[in-house]
Nucleic acid binder design. Structure first.
Lengths: 162, 162
DNA sequence: TAATGGTATGGTATAATATATCTATTTTCT
DNA sequence: AGAAAATAGATATATTATACCATACCATTA
């Protein structure tokens, strides 16, 4: 379970560690599951992890093709679908974009805090939120399957720098 | 028979009442605010209210043009923007679609329960959810501005009819 | 080794969603 | 009536996503 005390990505963190950790975890998880993290898929994961800001599919495609390659949209969408399926990335519905998941073993989908200034995203796993949603669903007459919780706003660092 | 504090739209409700109420409220609200619910905007609101299922912009456009009219996409998007701005409809981010709001006076955005079978949506305003989000945001180091809470799943009626 | 079947990738076209921009009309205000 | 603002019309294009068909790769087994 991720720590929940002010874990919004900040300017000073060593992002190389995030990337390295994500790639290592992905390798392990794919081996465990007997699925293939092919060079293409690995490359897309790496591109998504270039920052903590969600990246659009076509932006990822541009990066893939930056060296003159000629990959087409279905190629990147297929890789993104694979990564989504295995929880290695999440889709941010309100942005049509994708962000790396730091806890891919942890299957259930989190809640996302998206800073309107720096664009970075923090993923939370608040039991309190999930339970409040369950309670509201029950009152409404509804069975929860796929909760989407995406909170736009401002991170403290951007707030302080105003 | 669904329980009494269950407000998910069901097959038996009189939808003409929903439509009528929405249009009357919209007229009043626009008058109060000194903005114009033009025939075009009113027509789009009416189309969105044809059901409790979110409607895509291009589906709305098709309905607008069903009589041979030649409205173009910007026309419907402009009307939708107006309706959004005044809280008369909500955008469902996870579906790129729009749904009528039954409580337009009530400005803050609700939480949406979306049935994967019938497509209908219920809007909730759970203080418990909002507070849980605020609490999680505080722990994360984040200031909430625009929460998006869209829960896909199954309504009880569709569950019972399986 | 070749046959087979499943998985992954390449490539073209097109669907679906959304906006920029410019023009014309209507409404409101003075 | 005339000016300013809001609304609507029209064309083009940007952005996001998928359908479809063909090819390549890979593992198992005959």
């Amino acid at each position: 379970m991720p720590s929940s005390n002010n874990n919004f990505p900040n300017r000073h963190h060593d992002h190389a560690v995030c990337i390295e950790s994500a790639l290592v975890q992905a390798e392990l998880l794919c081996r465990e599951r007997g699925v293939r993290l092919t060079p293409l898929r690995r490359r897309v994961l790496e591109i998504v992890w270039e920052s903590h800001a969600p990246l659009g599919a076509y932006d990822a495609l541009q990066r893939m093709n930056a060296g003159g390659e000629r990959n087409a949209p279905p190629t990147v969408y297929r890789a993104l679908d694979f990564l989504l399926k295995h929880g290695l990335i999440h889709r941010i519905e309100s942005m049509n974009a994708f962000v790396g998941c730091a806890t891919p073993e942890y299957t259930h989908k989190g809640q996302f805090f998206i800073c309107r200034d720096c664009g970075n995203v923090a993923e939370a796993h608040s039991k309190e939120i999930s339970e409040a949603i369950e309670a509201s669903a029950t009152r409404t007459g509804f069975l929860v399957e796929t909760p989407v919780v995406e909170i736009s706003g401002q991170c403290l660092e951007c707030h302080d720098n105003e």
